[in-house]
Write a protein that binds this DNA or RNA. Structure first.
Lengths: 120, 120
DNA sequence: ACAATTGGTTTGCCATGCAAACCTCGATCT
DNA sequence: AGATCGAGGTTTGCATGGCAAACCAATTGT
């Protein structure tokens, strides 16, 4: 067992934009490039790069085709991608539960901290 | 309004190692450098850099002092740090809830795609 | 015909993340 | 006392990553 939940987070999956891509892809099963682009507020270049990373890692497949005469690119989670996302979520849930335990006692953002920790 | 939960994640906070630092600091209120180092499995150099980022962002304070005659460095969340962590957790919870709905009925493929029609 | 738009990839650059090398001070050995 | 060892961190150097701008290709509008 690793020492802390965050130790088992995969950097490929945990990255903000890619986490968004995986989440949207899971919700929709098959997603258009342009839908991801606008939903996640990305430039096309940025999205293209992140999709490359995910494809290379085997977490998504990229399918190109036509809708009428318009070129389209679709993104779909692979089985490994679903598992990777699931693992990320599981780890995050663990982390959240650890912190939630504290929030119950502490009332959320704790106002009571002072600024004199010098022990000497 | 942001289009997707991940859009409101702060990259300073969301980064894997720093999320770990903030989480541990919140759990313990005041943490020794070396405790963070071993708990999170980091090199001292790496930890030092990340603490610099968090301090510069105003999310933690770094206090140096002595324990006996041994130099020690303590890390403590600021109020802003607590809020930032809380916001991150809140966003993650939102994201998880969205995906959890799918997982409940997940036997594999999700029937109702709304993002894209199937290609020919 | 050709300008504008859609759809996406490649390029170039700066920021980031990491470990190795380094620095400083106290404890221990001889 | 001087050398040596180790704990506790910081700085340096480098490879990677993330981003937008520039670019390429096909389509639609005028």
């Amino acid at each position: 067992m690793t020492e802390h939940p965050t130790n088992s987070l995969d950097d490929v999956v945990h990255q903000r934009v890619r986490l968004g891509i995986l989440a949207v892809a899971k919700e929709a099963r098959r997603v258009e490039f342009t839908f991801l682009r606008s939903t996640l507020g990305l430039t096309a270049g940025n999205l293209s790069q992140h999709l490359g990373v995910l494809e290379k890692a085997g977490l998504v497949t990229i399918d190109k085709g036509y809708e009428g005469k318009r070129a389209r690119t679709w993104v779909q989670l692979t089985k490994a991608g679903k598992k990777a996302l699931h693992d990320e979520i599981t780890t995050l849930r663990t982390l959240i539960h650890q912190l939630e335990g504290l929030e119950e006692r502490d009332g959320g953002v704790n106002p009571g901290s002072t600024a004199a920790p010098s022990p000497g």
